[in-house]
Design a binder for these strands. Structure first.
Lengths: 160, 160
DNA sequence: TCTAGACCTTCCCATGATAGGAAGGTCAAC
DNA sequence: GTTGACCTTCCTATCATGGGAAGGTCTAGA
């Protein structure tokens, strides 16, 4: 199986396959006499694994851990859950930051009606330096809302 | 005002100030006889503007637009709202993706109880290639939830 | 057998925002 | 005058991805 076929079968770009090999995320591929890389079903399976993990936002280093766990069948589910939970925590932090930004911007846009420049707080807020009162209030509000969405108390049950 | 003082006053790293100047996000700074960059209050004000916009997740290119709007007081609030709304839409897309990933992972972790490897779907799901039924169902669920959180119908009123 | 073109190889470069560091010049205080 | 804080430019790296050049290999058809 050439790299192109492995790429189509796994959904991982050929360029990325070579890159993953170069950073030792994947073992060195077998080679044909021509020098072409040669893949089999197991290789494709591993590529699919990597692609799925990337789709779920795992970093390359985290995927390294997951592949180790995958290769070592003796390792328990707790290890797997620990990696997944660490990743969930990271994603939640990102989501919280995003929701805070969205909430603040929505509030600013909502407060900016009409065409009178003086009445639009967006520019004023951006250039204000310190956090304007409505911004602080809105930030706290969106964070509370985000927390209720993410339900960390619920997640805590799964934390290592 | 040296770059260090401007940095402390604005909260923008000196390295970043030079970078922003090099990509023409900021005008070339005035120079003292020594060659040192020389900033005044207006410069600091602009730096604060950039920092606040970065904090809100605006890209450099979007900040370029915002600075143009800022410099051109004749432009109306609708222009400002348009930039902000475009950014909100981008942030919501990111948030939606994140929430989907979080939901999927939470579901997988929840389904992975005990220590029997066979009972843990995380690895199976990652290596599965196609989306497992519970993944698809969960994805749809988290997306609905995210949509209700982000309230796009509400935002639509402010779209250009 | 020759050739076209699809595919492969390695190597270099670019992205965006940020940061570290080297080598050397300037300033202020003691 | 010296020390140390600060400044300058220039080079490098990050992470994951992708574009492209220059050149080798394979396969199908004339």
């Amino acid at each position: 199986m050439n790299i192109g076929q492995a790429s189509r079968a796994s959904g991982v770009n050929a360029k990325m396959i070579r890159y993953y090999e170069s950073i030792a995320l994947l073992p060195e591929a077998a080679r044909k006499d021509s020098g072409y890389r040669d893949y089999d079903e197991a290789d494709v399976h591993r590529l699919v694994f990597v692609r799925r993990a990337r789709d779920l936002g795992f970093s390359i280093d985290r995927i390294r851990d997951l592949l180790d766990l995958w290769n070592d069948r003796a390792r328990g589910n707790a290890d797997v859950r620990a990696v997944a939970n660490a990743h969930i925590t990271e994603l939640q932090a990102q989501a919280q930051k995003l929701e805070g930004m969205i909430g603040t911007l929505q509030h600013l846009v909502k407060s900016c009606r009409g065409e009178n420049r003086a009445e639009c707080p967006i520019m004023a807020d951006l250039s204000g330096g310190q956090v304007a009162p409505h911004y602080a209030a809105n930030l706290a509000k969106t964070q509370r809302r985000l927390i209720s969405v993410a339900k960390p108390s619920h997640i805590a049950r799964f934390r290592k």
